[in-house]
Design a protein around this nucleic acid. Structure first.
Lengths: 216, 216
DNA sequence: CCCATAAATTAGGTATACCTAATAAGTAAA
DNA sequence: TTTACTTATTAGGTATACCTAATTTATGGG
């Protein structure tokens, strides 16, 4: 039984990400995220379970210890790739996700090490997500979605949970990027927009978008 | 008919390289180089021909205009990857070939451009081979194998036609790397070794090895 | 020119990862 | 509790790229 490592990594990475929002990950959710049909995913998940990378429990799949370890390695390579692309090759933060999706499967542990080393062991990717260390350990900041701040509350942007280039461009154009201080001036009722103040400018921001911006 | 681009690139790259030593490339030679069985290669070559990437002539295959164009793109990505690895990430010249073999399939035209740009459009890979430009054009230096120099002749190393890490380490330890001046002091008869002088030191070098070092 | 050998292809078969359509299993509302 | 619906899985089938064994096609020596 010879495996397609890239494909396995893709599944593990997706499961890992989806686990963060919903614990046992459902087949359909995973299929949607991977843009595959549910039966394909069902079948593949069975293979992953057989390899000891996931457990199929009642309401979905969850990573085993080893699956989690592998997933974090892929995520480390993904995020280090993103950093290399922005910091060394001059890419913008909205251009790096798709590129890194391909690079993460082509990067050896040696390249991984060298990238980390030459960038001074960065702690986060350009979107503010933590880069696990070689042992899969990373600091998880305690954050709140910007959408949950009350009027007059301030926060520093930690990360932006978004992959769509258009949206990332938009956010960057408003200056809504990690490490920036943002203040909520008012919150419109009935799920309406937030009025936020970023580096001297005032903008109206939808709840949906604001929920993807994590602050501390 | 949906294709595995990486596999196609692998074939084209191999054909391109083998063409340089033997013009129409034989199935068996190609199979050997790709470490696949001749029937597998025979079959795949048929598909490549169907896609208009190679022509199957009497005594083997040769790249079409388009096949050649694609091959040179892969080679460009390969060699730029190698340069990135040595110049930016601090790898040694013997470590980069295998890594680049994986990276070359994961690098988009955008990354390719950025690497070229941030390295100042390098003209050669760390082994001295030319990097084709975006249109597949590259300067081909007129070179001679070191093994063909007569006693007392001098030359400047242009490139080293070798991929084996052990051999590359050995050559680097003698200082036999591109841009270095080397003088043949004497040539032992009956296909014996050459005595060469490199930056003040004298070494005996087998004909086989010397034939892989190209000088001008 | 024919035969031995080397090279290329055809025949037949495997594994992986995907698909659609059909079925089964769970869940929630009537 | 039965129905209606959603979600997961099974069944059956496709494409790609590989393999070994058998056959065909070239090629060069006698």
């Amino acid at each position: 039984m010879e495996a397609d490592t890239s494909r396995i990594e893709e599944y593990l990475e997706s499961i890992y990400k989806l686990q963060q929002e919903q614990h046992p990950v459902s087949t359909s959710r995973l299929a949607e995220h991977l843009k595959l049909s549910p039966p394909s995913v069902s079948e593949m998940v069975k293979k992953l379970a057989h390899k000891g990378l996931v457990n199929q429990i009642e309401k979905g799949v969850c990573l085993t210890e080893e699956g989690s370890r592998m997933a974090k390695k892929v995520i480390r390579r993904h995020r280090l790739s993103e950093r290399l692309l922005t910091d060394v090759l001059g890419f913008k933060w909205d251009e790096v996700h798709d590129e890194a999706c391909r690079l993460e499967h082509a990067i050896s542990p040696e390249i991984e090490d060298r990238i980390a080393e030459s960038l001074g062991n960065p702690k986060t990717c350009p979107h503010g997500h933590p880069i696990p260390d070689k042992d899969g350990v990373f600091v998880k900041e305690i954050v709140r979605p910007l959408s949950e701040l009350k009027a007059r509350e301030k926060g520093i942007i930690v990360s932006v949970f978004e992959e769509d280039p258009k949206m990332l461009q938009y956010l960057a154009s408003l200056g809504l990027i990690p490490d920036v201080c943002v203040e909520v001036e008012e919150v419109a009722p009935f799920g309406g927009p937030l009025i936020v103040c970023v580096s001297g400018s005032r903008y109206a921001l939808g709840r949906e978008v604001a929920s993807k911006i994590k602050v501390k």
